[in-house]
């Protein structure tokens, strides 16, 4: 028996909006730790890993580990039927072939339930080692989204370069080129407005901009985004969900040959 009651139901809605265009079908895994997902896009260039810890739920019952295959676009459609302040409860029976979503309005005057059929999905689970990254940049998520959107009007790739001077985002295309530099800035009124750069070594990596732009759909989940970069590794773009969990995107870089 699975029963998960999420008072801040809009979190689940925002998570689905953030991943539904990147991944078509995926398995949601439920265990004592929490509600999680790891899935790659069809070309194996990008991966999303998300976790809502069991503590994020007002009620969390998961009698045994369960993996539920769902079409994410359909799941997003179901979640769009919930109100912005609704409490969302997920329910599934052991050995069942469906997942029920229950939406309760905050004053309990409307209760809706939607049942979705589960799918069998063969998915490759990647082992992602814990790594010390050469550079970690924390910055306002809205600023990062703005930069990616602006650069995508100029080119198809984004070079992210971290030096002592700051973090530089660059692109070039048929009409020309663009460079945007953000310097460390901790003298802000609100901590979420800070830009913090921790650098062990300078690093430059180049990525396909359309993937990074897709990751920024997670912006409503967090005021800050963290970029973790090392020369020979995929970048990690992480949005922390308060004390409740995270959504991380991994993106393979362009490789010089």
């Amino acid at each position: 028996m699975l029963e998960l009651r999420l008072v801040q139901g809009s979190l689940l809605k925002k998570l689905l909006e953030a991943i539904k265009d990147l991944v078509t079908d995926a398995n949601f895994d439920c265990s004592a730790t929490g509600f999680s997902l790891q899935a790659m896009d069809s070309s194996h260039v990008a991966l999303v890993s998300l976790l809502l810890r069991s503590e994020a739920f007002e009620h969390y019952r998961c009698d045994r580990n369960i993996s539920m295959g769902l079409n994410l676009s359909n799941m997003a459609k179901v979640l769009r039927c919930s109100g912005p302040d609704d409490i969302i409860t997920l329910k599934a029976d052991d050995g069942g072939d469906s997942l029920t979503f229950m939406f309760e309005s905050p004053n309990q005057d409307k209760i809706a339930d939607f049942e979705m059929k589960l799918m069998d999905i063969d998915s490759e689970h990647l082992g992602i080692p814990d790594t010390e990254y050469q550079a970690i940049v924390r910055m306002p998520s809205a600023e990062f989204a703005r930069i990616c959107k602006d650069l995508s009007g100029i080119g198809d790739t984004i070079a992210i370069s971290v030096t002592k001077e700051g973090v530089k985002f660059s692109t070039r295309g048929d009409i020309g080129s663009a460079n945007i530099v953000c310097r460390q800035n901790t003298s802000v009124d609100k901590p979420e407005d800070a830009t913090i750069i921790e650098m062990e070594e300078p690093v430059t990596l180049t990525f396909a901009l359309r993937y990074i732009n897709s990751f920024t759909k997670a912006t409503p989940l967090s005021n800050q985004v963290t970029l973790s970069l090392s020369s020979d590794l995929p970048v990690v773009v992480e949005y922390k969900i308060a004390e409740m969990g995270y959504i991380r995107f991994y993106l393979a870089p362009k490789i010089d040959e």
């Binding site: 194996h44 260039v45 991966l47 990647l126 393979a252 870089p253």
Partner: peptide, 14 residues
């Protein structure tokens, strides 16, 4: 031009 890497170039399937 550099080629687009895949995650399988970096991470193993567990």
């Amino acid at each position: 031009d550099p080629r687009q890497g895949t995650l399988l170039d970096f991470f193993g399937v567990s």
